[in-house]
Design a protein around this nucleic acid. Structure first.
Lengths: 242, 242
DNA sequence: GCATGCCTTGACCGATTGGTCAGCTTTGTA
DNA sequence: TACAAAGCTGACCAATCGGTCAAGGCATGC
């Protein structure tokens, strides 16, 4: 509402992350060019936006926010630089939109649990869904990694707020399971980090994984095997009956 | 030998990584300014070199190779940009020297093992020494992560050669242990990746770890706890008697 | 017809990039 | 003291950075 540019620059979400000046949101909802909702024109627009987002995710994942240039994104999307900026408004905005998209995917994975759930089922679902997420969106995973590696300037609020609360809630359940003798009394936070890191690894360190295994890519079967391996080792490792 | 600049630009090692043009090495060994080995001048030089290396490691770790600027490194080292380039020759060379330094530290950790060693001892030493490495050199760990995240353009040879051989050798030993019933028959390569990722995590994702745990920094005690946790869970998880 | 928008992009802006170089100061030796 | 070599850095370079803008292209509603 306050300082936003007079041109709309739709994309899908506002740059609600890491706002510096004001608290209110300035929704910036998607605006259709004319009265009609889904014409030929809007279809083309959405196709271009999609291409830009895809290209930008790859570039930012590889080179980070500072290292990724709008020119490189434009080339990867097959558009002139001016067009990219016309669609997204600014480099910063594009980056924020991509981060938001990834955190939305992440949040969609985080369903709640209760003490009465089965530890084996919950942990296995946790591991497998996290593996599936990095499998489905490796570029997004790397984008997230690059952001955190750079000190998480855009995500600090999210990490210290929403995500922290979620982890703490899970941690309490894990502790209660331990009290009931359903699993070992391991530190639940370290356990969650272990699962995150072990799964994240196959996206972030893909060149290392491929180089060492001598593969060109990880197959679906490989991902299945890795998921099985992780479930088996981690569940057994924290004393969950299977 | 071939194209190297006429000025020496010592530092400590040659840019032997990722050579593009020729195979021979052009050693570029450390050269003392005058006949004497350790004068007042060389001491100052080494102090400045150290400051530059330290500053550059931080900048490259944060922003990656492309995103990190010589200007930023110079400011962090408290020197003019020209001086930094005078000492290191080029941005690329500085980056390569830092990567080499980190891989040297890494290699120093990789002692050989044999089938007759005790699996519990070996794996525990493996986990703890890896944790100690990321603890001692978090910036270097992040530098390595950023390099791999960006497609490992400078490290591909190392990953596909030296490191791969080392992993394969360990993998064979793990398999033999499994055959002897000393541990479960888990895929040894996935096991090594699990250890690497779980330990690496506390350097690379430090902002996330701190944000979620609500700490300002991880203490020595925290690192001790995490090491204990990982040893216990992983050893138990792959069926090693303790 | 003709006007009204949005779409599209080449040209351009000041700032910053990695790197060079001339010329100064400092140091070590004879 | 004289001289050469090394240390050091401000000024400058072409290239690229993110971003602006004016001017056309093009479709639609009167």
């Amino acid at each position: 509402m306050t300082v936003t540019s007079d041109v709309d620059h739709s994309l899908t979400a506002a740059d609600s992350l890491a706002r510096t000046d004001s608290v209110d949101t300035a929704p910036t909802t998607m605006r259709e060019p004319q009265g009609q909702g889904d014409g030929e024109a809007t279809a083309r627009r959405q196709r271009k936006e999609q291409a830009i987002l895809e290209a930008a995710e790859g570039v930012f994942a590889r080179y980070g926010y500072r290292g990724g240039s709008v020119q490189a994104i434009a080339e990867a999307a097959g558009l002139p630089k001016s067009s990219v900026l016309y669609y997204v408004g600014s480099k910063r905005r594009l980056y924020v939109v991509l981060l938001e998209r990834m955190m939305t995917r992440w949040n969609a994975m985080l369903d709640d649990i209760s003490v009465d759930d089965d530890p084996a089922e919950v942990l296995e679902a946790f591991i497998r869904s996290k593996m599936a997420l990095t499998r489905a969106h490796p570029q997004g995973s790397r984008l997230f990694a690059a952001e955190v590696l750079g000190g998480a300037p855009f995500l600090q609020e999210y990490l210290r707020g929403e995500l922290r609360d979620w982890v703490q809630a899970r941690a309490r359940v894990f502790e209660q399971w331990a009290e009931r003798g359903l699993m070992d009394a391991v530190d639940p936070v370290w356990l969650i980090f272990l699962i995150w890191s072990a799964t994240q690894h196959y996206a972030d360190f893909e060149p290392q994984v491929l180089g060492i295994t001598g593969r060109n890519a990880l197959s679906d079967q490989d991902h299945q095997d890795i998921s099985d391996f992780l479930c088996r080792l981690i569940l057994k490792g924290c004393g969950i009956r299977h």
